[in-house]
C-alpha cells in the first residue's frame, strides 16, 4: 500500500524508466526433488521476459488515462505496477494520493463471509480504517442495491450482486486515484450505466483515473488521453480519440495482413 504523500507536484502518478521483468520458467521446480534433479543436470530452464520495458509516464491530477493494447502487451502488468502489486525490477514509481484498485472485482471477498463482513475486510485490505468503513457502510449497501442480502454470505449472491457490491466498496471509499482493469466489460447494461455515471462523477471531482480496456468506444467517450502499449513499451501517447483510432487501424492492418 502506498503512503498517501502530500506533495505540491502536479502529478499524481509518475513512472520513471520502469521495467517489470518476469522469470518465465518452462519447468518450474515446484518441489525439492525437481530442484535437486535440475541442480545436478545443470540446466537452466527459464528465460527472463520484460512485460514492461523502460516505461516513463506522468499522469496529472484529474486526468482520465486509457491504456490500450493487445492481449499480452503488458497493459495489466503496467496497471499492477501503478497499483503497487508488483515492485518493479527497475525504475521508480511514485503515487501521490490514496489509490483504489479495481483489478478484479471482489478480489478480497471471502465466500463464507457476509456482504457486510466483506465490506469491512475489503476496506481494511485497501488500507482504510474500520471507522471509515463503518461510516460508509450504508452508502455502499445502498449503491450496490443489495438489500437484505447484505447479511448473507456472498457465496449466495448472484454474480451481478457480487460485482455491484465489489464496485461499490472500491469506489465509495472515495479514493483520489482509481485504477480499473477491464472490469467494466461485465455486468448488465444498467449496472454499467451506473458505473460510468460514478466514474463521470469521479472525473468531475478532479480525481485521477487509469482505465485499461479493449473497448475503444469507452476510451473515446471517457478518457482525456490514451497510451498504446505494445510488447511492454509505449508506442503512442496522445488524445484518446487519436490513440483509439491508431489502435483500431493497427488491428485492422493485422487482420488484412492475415488474409
Amino acid at each position: 500500500m502506498f503512503e498517501p504523500e502530500m506533495s505540491s507536484t502536479a502529478v499524481t502518478i509518475r513512472l520513471e524508466n520502469v521495467t517489470q521483468r518476469f522469470r518465465v520458467i518452462q519447468e518450474r521446480p515446484d518441489t525439492l526433488r525437481e530442484l535437486f534433479s535440475k541442480f545436478f543436470r545443470h540446466q537452466s530452464s527459464y528465460h527472463d521476459f520484460d512485460a514492461v520495458k523502460n516505461v516513463s509516464l506522468e499522469v496529472p491530477p484529474g486526468q482520465m488515462l486509457g491504456i490500450v493494447g493487445r492481449n499480452g502487451s503488458g497493459k495489466s502488468t503496467l496497471l499492477k505496477v501503478i497499483a503497487g502489486v508488483y515492485r518493479p525490477t527497475a525504475g521508480t514509481v511514485e503515487v501521490h494520493g490514496t489509490l483504489a484498485p479495481l483489478i478484479e472485482l471482489g478480489a478480497g471477498f471471502h465466500h463464507e463471509l457476509t456482504g457486510r463482513e466483506n465490506i469491512l475486510l475489503n476496506g481494511l485490505l485497501m488500507g482504510y480504517s474500520k471507522r471509515e468503513m463503518l461510516e460508509r457502510e450504508q452508502r455502499i449497501i445502498d449503491f450496490a442495491e443489495i438489500g437484505d442480502f447484505i447479511d448473507s454470505p456472498v457465496k449466495q449472491y448472484s454474480s451481478g450482486m457480487y460485482m455491484r457490491l465489489a464496485f461499490s466498496v472500491a469506489t465509495e471509499v472515495d479514493p483520489q486515484i482509481l485504477v480499473i482493469d477491464e472490469i467494466l466489460a461485465v455486468g448488465d447494461a444498467g449496472f454499467q450505466q451506473k458505473c460510468f455515471e460514478r466514474i463521470r462523477n469521479f472525473k468531475s471531482a478532479g480525481k485521477t483515473i487509469v482505465l485499461v480496456t479493449h473497448d475503444m468506444s469507452q476510451i473515446e467517450e471517457h478518457c482525456d488521453r490514451a497510451i498504446l502499449i505494445e510488447k511492454g513499451s509505449i508506442m503512442a501517447d496522445g488524445p484518446a480519440a487519436e490513440v483509439a483510432e491508431l489502435y483500431r487501424s493497427s488491428i485492422a492492418l493485422e487482420v488484412v495482413g492475415a488474409h
Binding site: M1, F2, G84, V85, P101, I103, G108, L125
Partner: peptide, 8 residues
Amino acid sequence: DLIKKVAV
C-alpha cells in the same frame, strides 16, 4: 490470489 490483485 489476493496478493496478486491488491497491494497489501
